[in-house]
């Protein structure tokens, strides 16, 4: 490891923000399941590691009726997998969380870390996107909120500026009758990154939301496709049409996990399968 870093564990948010702003080459540590690998592979050169797990704001994991769910930046993925309220209210998030990496890694990996790492193939963003998640960011100028669909700016890039850190992610409570599902394709059933992951949601008013990963430089919410589906009205026929139309809304690449062509095909299949399951029909 070429990095030589100091370790700092702040106990209040101001202290953390000031330190991150002042010190060059400082990196935020929560679960460490991505950061430690970047350090080990010498992909980053860190001089300061800021462990945010003692910040009270990052440990929040709460659901408030009417207001929705808040997941602090220190909350690990298995907490979300085991949560009854997430299973009941945000099933696509439960399914995406349960599909992430291995059990041991989910005991350390955080939900917010999966966002901040900004991998194109991250499993949690598609699910968070369909629930209109908002990212709460602390920085030198105070707090700001960014909708998750505006948070990613490129492969492993986000809107975060120097001195800023994500404190939590929050999403409104879905109404009665809301349905959602997360489906992913990987090379093997166990521990593998997604080849394509699709979160589909049908809101109580019948409007759809679609989130997808591993088919573009960032995880994406497919707003244009959603509008077209909503205009046509949800039906088996519309779903079959959408499964073809989705190809026009994504730009997958060929890499070690899949060809671009296969990703297009799987995006089509997973969208169709997901939406049909949500309206109670088999694909």
């Amino acid at each position: 490891m070429i990095s030589r870093f100091t370790y700092f564990k702040p106990h209040n948010l101001n202290e953390a923000v000031q330190y991150l702003e002042k010190k060059e080459k400082s990196f935020v540590l929560a679960g460490g399941t991505d950061l430690m690998i970047l350090l080990r592979r010498n992909l980053i050169n860190a001089e300061h590691i800021v462990d945010i797990k003692a910040l009270p704001e990052t440990t929040a994991f709460e659901f408030i009726e009417g207001a929705g769910l808040t997941i602090g930046a220190s909350v690990v993925v298995n907490t979300v997998v085991d949560s009854e309220v997430v299973k009941a209210k945000y099933p696509a998030l439960n399914e995406a969380a349960a599909s992430l990496a291995s059990y041991q890694l989910r005991n350390r990996a955080t939900v917010v870390g999966n966002i901040c790492n900004a991998s194109p193939g991250a499993d949690l963003p598609p699910a968070l996107l369909v629930y209109d998640a908002v990212v709460n960011i602390a920085g030198p100028q105070g707090m700001r909120q960014v909708p998750l669909h505006e948070f990613f700016t490129g492969v492993k890039r986000t809107v975060l500026q120097r001195g800023e850190l994500v404190v939590s992610v929050q999403m409104p409570e879905p109404g009665e009758g809301d349905k959602s599902i997360y489906l992913r394709q990987a090379r093997l059933r166990g521990h593998d990154l997604a080849t394509v992951g699709v979160a589909s949601r049908i809101k109580p008013d019948g409007k759809v939301a679609i989130g997808i990963c591993a088919v573009a430089p960032t995880p994406k919410r497919l707003f244009a496709l959603e509008d077209m589906i909503n205009e046509r009205g949800l039906s088996q026929e519309t779903i079959e049409w959408a499964a073809e139309e989705i190809r026009e809304h994504i730009r997958p690449i060929t890499d070690v996990r899949s060809s671009a062509q296969y990703r297009l095909q799987m995006a089509s299949v997973l969208l169709k399968r997901g939406l049909l399951a949500l309206i109670g029909k088999e694909a």
Binding site: Y7, L29, G32, M36, D51, N107
Partner: peptide, 15 residues
């Protein structure tokens, strides 16, 4: 109480 992989945890995190 949780199974974790110790190779990607810093010793100082175990305070």
């Amino acid at each position: 109480g949780q199974a974790v992989t110790s190779c990607i945890i810093l010793a100082v995190e175990a305070e």
